[in-house]
């Protein structure tokens, strides 16, 4: 069985203890996914599994056999950055850059959640059709991604600019 990572099919590890995070970083050489706590508290290891954001440190690699993983390297590269990556640069949505891949993957997954109408703790109208991507909604949904440098304002600006109402509709597709 294989795990599809950024479009490439890779053999799953033989050692069932290997987390998806360590598989990506140590076996696949995809060190863009970061380890900040290895216990699901910081969000630095966030990747997309079939488009949904997950914490790769709390996931065993073998659980993802047959699934498709997208890491930060799969979203875009210097020269052809994803619009959100570009917005992070322009809005200075990071300082040291260590939590950044997790913030960006998390935001991509979050935008899809909002587009699907998944409510959050701060959503006022749980039965409503559309959820507005207010700054409060966005901050609540991104609170699993810690940034110790404190680039939160820039991160919020970058996400808000990238996922305006129109782009959210695209994220839903």
């Amino acid at each position: 069985m294989t795990i599809v990572v950024n479009g490439a099919a890779l053999d799953a590890p033989h050692d069932a203890r290997v987390s998806l995070l360590d598989f990506l970083r140590e076996t696949c050489g995809l060190s863009g996914t970061k380890k900040g706590c290895d216990q699901g508290a910081c969000g630095a290891c966030t990747v997309l599994a079939d488009g949904e954001r997950i914490l790769s440190c709390l996931s065993l690699a073998v659980q993802y056999e047959g699934r498709s993983i997208t890491t930060i390297e799969g979203l875009g590269q210097p020269g052809r950055l994803h619009p959100l990556q570009q917005a992070f640069v322009e809005h200075d949505g990071f300082q040291c850059g260590y939590c950044t891949p997790g913030q960006i993957c998390s935001a991509v997954g979050m935008a899809a959640e909002i587009a699907r109408g998944v409510p959050s703790h701060v959503t006022v109208d749980l039965g409503g059709e559309d959820i507005l991507l207010s700054h409060e909604e966005l901050r609540e949904r991104m609170s699993g991604n810690l940034c110790r440098c404190g680039a939160y304002n820039g991160i919020v600006e970058a996400i808000a600019e990238t996922y305006g109402a129109e782009t959210l509709a695209e994220a839903a597709e």
Binding site: L30, G32, T33, E73, L81, Q86, F88, G97, T100, P101
Partner: peptide, 9 residues
């Protein structure tokens, strides 16, 4: 160094 950081490079 922004492009490198946001791309995980």
């Amino acid at each position: 160094d922004g492009p490198l950081k946001v791309a995980g490079r």
